[in-house]
Design a protein around this nucleic acid. Structure first.
Lengths: 166, 166
DNA sequence: GTTAACTTTCACAAGTTTTTGAAATTATAA
DNA sequence: TTATAATTTCAAAAACTTGTGAAAGTTAAC
């Protein structure tokens, strides 16, 4: 495998990993391309490199910026925008967690609270009562911890995280 | 909200949570239905309750059994199979982690190792070299830790996990 | 062994998500 | 300003995923 093949492999692997984390394939590929690029790239270069349409490139770059995984920049005298990836993996993980927390965990907690409030839940269905209780317990703790992680400094976060997981 | 509405809400919420964890919507709904049921259910009952076809029910029950999230059982004198969900949330989390580790983390580690072996990687592209190194570091540690979690007793796992995340 | 109840399979249908490309909009260098 | 390079939008197309139902395959009670 040479450098070029390595880059292609990295981009496609990161693409499929991403799609298991709520980041669509192209979005993750754009991120991967920027991650391994020494210099900022413009939309044109991204389209060219990944062989995708202008609209697709734009949408996914925009989404990456929303997630805080890509930054927009300019070069003096140039009109077009140049993009850079967040390369600090601690930050990348934090940003992804933040999005998933907001989209998944928080709505689930809200729903579980509503369900817990149902009259006679625990009289009528023992299994249901217990499951709701267990998941609530778990997700509330997870929610608090993730908040702390998100708030923490990224170096501290990654090193603690790596230590924590041994 | 009454009990019935609560159940429906739980099933649909669990369905959408699941789909962010590599479990398709129907598969997660079947799991949810079995989770909150006091007694084992047969295919017919699941089809009826979730209003899905026989084929669909069968495929998803099968997949849940493969993942270890649902168990097959029999009632004396009855020919058909009855299904029960794994209700220990520690086990549920372990099983999901196990699958994702196998499908995502392991292939990624393999690819990163191949890429690291590329001649002159670090001479030719500093950014690429650094990113591959960082991700390798992180994913190898994560891999080892997840192995330990998967191997550990589920009560120990959940309580440690809850403590760990504060 | 026969039969009927139950499970599995699979080609096709329906639903969902992603991508395209051309037109509309915006922004800036001259 | 004006010309034009660059970005954004969006409806339609393509690709992908999931679901259906009827037919084929199994299995166990009799």
């Amino acid at each position: 495998m040479n450098l070029q093949e390595g880059k292609e492999k990295f981009i496609s692997t990161w693409g499929s990993v991403g799609s298991n984390w709520g980041i669509n394939r192209t979005m993750a590929q754009v991120h991967a391309l920027l991650l391994i690029s020494n210099d900022p790239l413009c939309a044109e270069e991204i389209m060219e490199d990944l062989q995708i349409s202008r609209g697709n490139a734009n949408m996914n770059i925009r989404a990456l910026i929303d997630w805080g995984l890509v930054y927009k920049g300019h070069k003096p005298g140039e009109r077009k925008e140049f993009f850079t990836a967040e390369k600090d993996m601690g930050e990348v993980i934090k940003k992804v967690i933040e999005q998933r927390k907001k989209k998944e965990l928080e709505p689930m907690i809200k729903t579980l609270d509503e369900i817990s409030a149902v009259e006679g839940l625990c009289q009528d269905s023992e299994a249901f009562c217990k499951v709701v209780h267990d998941i609530k317990l778990f997700s509330n703790k997870a929610n608090k911890t993730l908040d702390q992680l998100i708030r923490s400094d990224s170096n501290w976060f990654l090193s603690t995280f790596l230590k924590m997981i041994k």
